[in-house]
């Protein structure tokens, strides 16, 4: 809830077109839920983003778009192990679906 409030405030302050959300959730479904929240609005209608479709650009930390835009050594140090652990394909697929459907930028 607190995170939803922060995302909403940041998008209002800097403009939704200037914000990117990076998600680190370990499961494809939970990552997709978070991605849906910052794009289409909170699907559980429980938090500040209920009915607020911010349409933000959203990526998971294991997606190539993020990986290629950061320092390779830092990425390996911070995310390298989790890349081996997570179901990267499932996460990428879910994240793409959400972006295609709801991202406005």
């Amino acid at each position: 809830m607190e995170n939803q409030r922060r995302v909403k405030e940041l998008a209002e302050k800097y403009g939704a077109e200037n914000c990117i959300v990076i998600i680190g959730g370990s499961e494809a479904d939970s990552a997709a839920l978070a991605a849906e929240t910052v794009t289409a609005g909170d699907p559980t209608y429980a938090g500040p983003l209920a009915g607020v479709p911010l349409g933000l650009r959203v990526y998971h930390a294991v997606e190539s778009e993020f990986k290629e835009s950061v320092d390779a050594d830092v990425y390996d140090e911070q995310v390298g192990m989790m890349e081996m652990v997570l179901d990267v394909d499932a996460i990428v697929e879910k994240m793409r679906e959400i972006r295609e459907q709801y991202t406005q930028f």
Binding site: E77, Q78, V79, M81, M82, V85
Partner: peptide
């Protein structure tokens, strides 16, 4: 230590 899963493990 940092909070990345790698650093934690």
């Amino acid at each position: 230590t940092g909070s990345s899963p790698q650093a934690v493990i």
